[in-house]
Design a protein around this nucleic acid. Sequence first.
DNA 1: AGTCTCACG
DNA 2: ACGTACGTGAGACTC
Length: 652
Amino acid sequence: MPEPEKPKALMAEMHKSHRNTEATPEQDLATSLRAIPVVHSDYETVTTMDQLDRWIAAALNQAYVCIDTETDSLDAMQANIIGVSLATAPGKACYIPLGHQAAGEGLFGGGMLEGQINRDAALAKIKLLCEASHVLKIGQNIKYDMLGLSQRGISIHPIDDTMLLSYVVESGDVGHGMDELSERHLGHKPISFKDVAGSGKGQITFDRVPIDRATAYAAEDADITLRLWMVLKDKLIHIKKTTVYETLERPLIPVLMQMEREGVEVDRGVLAKLSSEFATKQAAIEIEIHKLAGQPFNIGSPKQLGDILFGKMNLPGGRKTATGAWSTDADALDDLAAQGIELAKRVLDWRQLAKLRSTYTEALPTFINPKTGRVHTSYAMASTSTGRLSSTDPNLQNIPVRTDDGRRIRTAFVAPQGSKLISADYSQIELRVLAHVADIPQLKKAFADGLDIHAMTASEMFGVPIEGMDSSVRRRAKAINFGIIYGISAFGLSNQLSISREEAGDYIRTYFKRFPGIKDYMEQTKAHARAQGYVETIFGRRMHFPRINSPNPSEKAFLERASINAPIQGSAADIIRRAMIRMMPALNEQGLKARMLLQVHDELIFECPAEESKATAELVKKVMIAAPEPALKLSVPLQVDARAANNWDEAH
DNA sequence: AGTCTCACG
DNA sequence: ACGTACGTGAGACTC
């Protein structure tokens, strides 16, 4: 995607013109933008084709325009486009209503409102603008608009996204929603969606919002987004993070849009069968539990369960939660189960089945899109503090894998007839990143030699040979390796391994003695976070910890652990982002028809023609392994395991 | 709306 | 002395 020249020149211009003033450039820009008032009555409602032509012509005549679509659903795959707003300059914006209905109850509403231009004719003009390669289209979370417009055959390029600009400029404990950005950077509180559509049970869809109110709301959104773009682009340049935005954020937008649009096939029949099997098992366990408890109660209520276990039965070793209630989580029940309390064991089984049913076997089918017959998750690009993606509606990044019953849910994620699913995942990517950034000779050598990294750690720590190593020794080393990545504490490790805090402390001291570079890296990272208020990934993405010097010791310790973890987790996230961005062109070059469907942090899932599965798997591995290059050459090799099968369980 | 619990990397 | 392993999202229950 070519960088549009005019906006770049414009931003340089803005910089120059403010360079001699006392205030920093971004302060000045924000101040001057604040001086242009937001006047809702100045916004134009576009009701004729002539009016639309004038706006499109004006936009085509400049280097950038802000665009925003209004719809009747948060689900872009099912949403109807109700209107489009454009902003060409601060304070200069319009709203083009296309699908507003008369207010009223559901089907008894009064039908299409007058004074709206024909939707298809209008979208044809809007398409010209969206696809004009010399006009930068600016949006707030523009992936959403792109997905909706792509359903109508409209693509958008080139693009900029204020949400992602904000994410690069200040990723930490701040949000990146438009209302929040407006208040933070412009000192202006925009009309909220609740103000025009109401909330809760009385909420109406946008097509029932009166057009004058819709114009005030929608045109303002475009206006504000344009102003935010000016402020944020300036800040981005000022902190020299343009490359992060242009290589790790912006190019991922169309990739994720395509993945969301593609969706994944989920076999209803498989889920239905699992659901009834789980329900039957669960019902039998429920009877047993009530018998063991001597009374019926709601097993799903932690409060009632706590009362039974620690009140009525007066069992020992009960812990309390933060709010003073009896803790009944899996750890607490495990303790009781270890004491031979049958009731606790049965509740654990019941809970697992309840979870599998409510979150997976019963919820997933409701997400099958009636038009495509597939499940289309939504990826959030700016919701984590580390640069990872997150997945919602449904979350396809937490499909069970750790238990046998849970894993069976993955058999419902299938390849269509004649196709295969390919799962490709990085092996130990975070430990490899750690070996690289902390520059640990033994770790680097172990990865270079393809050794079992946990066994190597155990061997170094406990002085036992890798050959014929006791599995519990390796398990302890594995827990320590995880702990290191998380910013280890004796308490956390002791909990994980069910050992005393003293013993855990001994392990940690032993580990640091054998791997002094890790200790150094951790201390340096904390020092950097305390001094700068942020840490960075290997590609320069910043993650802010504004409260790292908190006077509250536990908060401070928590943030120090998080600051140790962030560069590791974040660098791994950057690597897979780079792989995803290169994947589409790489597949195209090879003439392969594979589609990338899902990302699960260190894993990518593809669908491809069965006869291409071998070639696809090879290429996917190659792209993933080479992802850090040419920006960076890691001092450890990356390893990717890939497999093709008819469903996700067998491919994984 | 907040809490608890639990699914994943 | 302080309470923790790091990062998420979702469903059920409670108030």
